[in-house]
């Protein structure tokens, strides 16, 4: 009797566990499916004819596949130029951030000089300054410097952000000081310590930070909208919105432009997914 209760209890537990597992799988994969729907719509619409894209009966696989919109975008708009602009801005912001942020993080954590604590304090306090508060005075500054429509108008203000310094300070702090000491005894200059010891040891954090900055600057909208005023100077995020205004009522073309603006980043994402995700995780931990 007691044995029977025992075993039936075991069976119930097992089924409960199974049902639970099935439910969780169903919910998670269901949600994932819903997450992918916007992509599916973007891809399929970008290949539709004008008529099908506007049809009240939605179709997920176009009846007639056309590359017309991609061709028109490539030939009639500056989209290639925008892609190049975005790439240059994102890359130079990334490089600049990695270089200047790692230098100051090195100075703050590995060198001993008065004032470093206050400087770090001010930099961290500037986290409180949201980007928009500065757009008006920054706009007048950039225009006084004659940098409107220039890549630098976007790159320099982006490179002033505190996030990289903050992350690198956290990381550099943890590198054992014995290494530095040994190098100093070997007669390494401070610059060599920075270049040949600290930087190589920080590869992972630098990669993660670099990726994050790259994606972040690729995607910026408000600031480039203000300082890049010439059609040829736009970045992709700005450009594709103007495409929508130019070609009234061509959802297929708009979706094709969205594809062109997002595919490069998706490729980056697929290639280095784990590193990018760890860049985000890092921000949560610190």
């Amino acid at each position: 009797m007691s044995e029977k209760t025992e075993s039936s209890y075991g069976v119930t537990a097992l089924t409960e566990e199974t049902i639970r597992s099935i439910t969780i799988h169903a919910v998670m994969y269901g949600t994932a499916f819903l997450f992918l729907i916007p992509y599916a719509w973007m891809i399929s619409s970008s290949l539709k004819t004008s008529q099908e894209a506007l049809s009240p009966n939605p179709s997920w696989i176009p009846h007639t596949i056309t590359f017309e919109w991609y061709i028109r975008l490539l030939t009639e708009t500056f989209i290639v130029q925008w892609l190049i602009n975005t790439l240059i801005i994102a890359l130079s912001t990334t490089v600049l951030v990695l270089v200047v942020d790692s230098m100051i993080a090195f100075a703050i954590t590995r060198l001993d000089w008065p004032g470093q604590r206050y400087i770090l304090g001010i930099i961290i306090a500037s986290f409180m300054v949201p980007g928009f508060v500065n757009i008006i005075p920054l706009f007048t500054l950039i225009s006084d410097l004659g940098l409107i429509n220039n890549y630098l108008a976007v790159v320099l203000p982006f490179a002033a952000g505190p996030i990289g310094v903050f992350l690198l300070v956290q990381f550099f702090k943890e590198i054992p000081y014995e290494l530095q000491e040994a190098a100093q005894l070997d007669g390494f200059s401070t610059f060599r310590i920075y270049l040949q010891i600290i930087l190589p040891l920080s590869k992972s954090v630098l990669t993660a930070l670099g990726l994050f900055i790259f994606v972040w600057s690729w995607n910026q909208f408000l600031w480039p909208l203000i300082v890049l005023q010439q059609e040829k100077a736009y970045t992709l995020p700005i450009g594709i919105v103007t495409v929508r205004n130019t070609y009234t009522y061509q959802p297929a073309l708009v979706m094709a432009s969205a594809m062109i603006a997002s595919v490069p980043l998706f490729l980056v994402f697929l290639a280095v997914q784990d590193k990018l995700i760890s860049a985000v995780e890092m921000q949560g931990v610190t």
Binding site: F139, T140, I142, S143, G146, I148, I226, Q229, Q230
Partner: peptide, 10 residues
Amino acid sequence: RLFTAMTSNE
């Protein structure tokens, strides 16, 4: 844009 361009000598 015309306005911002005018304020910034562009």
